[in-house]
């Protein structure tokens, strides 16, 4: 028995409600990938500033202490201004975030405003950079200050770990979080392929009661198996794949009571036909309001 029971199930952190009222799936980016993007940004800006300084130095255009002044100003620009300007130009992506394919979005599903971008980057300075540099600059001479700076940095890293949206302090105040950019890839529709026939020319037919055993989960697992790219498999992997198919077909036949044995040459055709028939059946049930999540749907119905 659970002692602490949540009153309301929370919505998944990966969904954002668009202004159209359709919830969209945008996966929240983890702490690791964000640290990687941050490191990439630091390296890129340092390399850029270094290259400019080296160029000026080699061309001998400036005196040494003017060069120092330019270095200080470049250092200043690579802090907050770089992050604010790149996130403004690329709508929530710095160069490092572009490399890691992550992006800042507004928490409430609206437009990512200038205010939010400025605030989250200003606070990054207070959260990480200032105590971080303090930590690096200090030594054993002042242990209390070092401890305070260390505790502050630890806290700044703990906040995103304790939060389902992985927001750091700046994100919390600005009302933003960071997501993975989704990659749209449209695979072909398995049900649109020609209805397969067995090698002897007979069609594979399933009866309605034979299709009542499985739900959406099993269907989509089968879909994943059918989409496996057999052309790229090594011979041993292909052998294993054939064995898996044979086992699955045996299980399906036993469960649904399909009497005819299936010849090894017809394995792919059988599964293809079963997939199409099962999907047609389940989709039709769903249209009538009978959603079947998995093979336990019958027990769930009787309980409810």
């Amino acid at each position: 028995m659970r002692i602490f029971r949540r009153k309301k199930p929370r919505p998944s952190p990966d969904t954002i409600l668009s202004p159209e009222g359709v919830p969209l799936t945008l996966k929240v980016a983890g702490v690791g990938v964000r640290v990687a993007a941050q490191l990439a940004d630091v390296l890129l800006t340092m390399a850029g500033a270094g290259a400019i300084l080296l160029l000026l130095d080699l061309m001998q255009l400036t005196q040494p202490h003017t060069l120092f002044a330019i270095a200080m100003m470049l250092f200043f620009l690579t802090r907050v201004p770089y992050y604010v300007i790149t996130e403004l130009i690329w709508n929530g992506q710095t160069l490092g975030k572009r490399l890691m394919k992550i992006k800042v979005v507004s928490h409430d599903g609206g437009t990512l405003g200038t205010h939010a971008i400025v605030l989250r980057n200003l606070l990054k300075e207070a959260e990480i950079f200032l105590p971080g540099t303090l930590l690096l600059a200090l030594d054993a001479a002042s242990p209390t200050l070092s401890l305070i700076a260390f505790a502050w940095v630890v806290m700044a890293f703990l906040i995103p770990l304790l939060n389902p949206y992985r927001q750091r302090l700046g994100d919390l105040l600005a009302g933003t979080h960071v997501i993975h950019l989704p990659q749209p890839v449209l695979l072909k529709d398995l049900a649109q392929e020609a209805i397969p026939v067995e090698t002897d020319g007979t069609r594979i037919v399933f009866l309605s009661h034979q299709l009542d055993h499985y739900g959406a989960f099993e269907l989509q697992t089968l879909e994943g198996l059918l989409r496996a790219d057999t052309g790229r498999m090594s011979p041993t992997a292909y052998g294993n794949h054939r064995k898996t198919l044979a086992t699955i077909i045996e299980k399906i036949r036993r469960k649904i009571g399909y009497a005819d044995p299936v010849a090894p040459a017809d394995h792919a055709a059988f599964l293809q036909a079963f997939y199409t028939a099962q999907r047609a059946h389940l989709e039709q049930r769903q249209l009538f309001g009978d959603r079947r999540a998995d093979k336990h749907h019958a027990e769930a119905d009787t309980q409810a």
């Binding site: 449209l186 959406a216 999907r279 389940l282 989709e283």
Partner: peptide, 10 residues
């Protein structure tokens, strides 16, 4: 209406 994982993901 659809149970096609590929279509939904896309």
């Amino acid at each position: 209406i659809s149970l096609d994982r590929a279509l939904l993901d896309y």
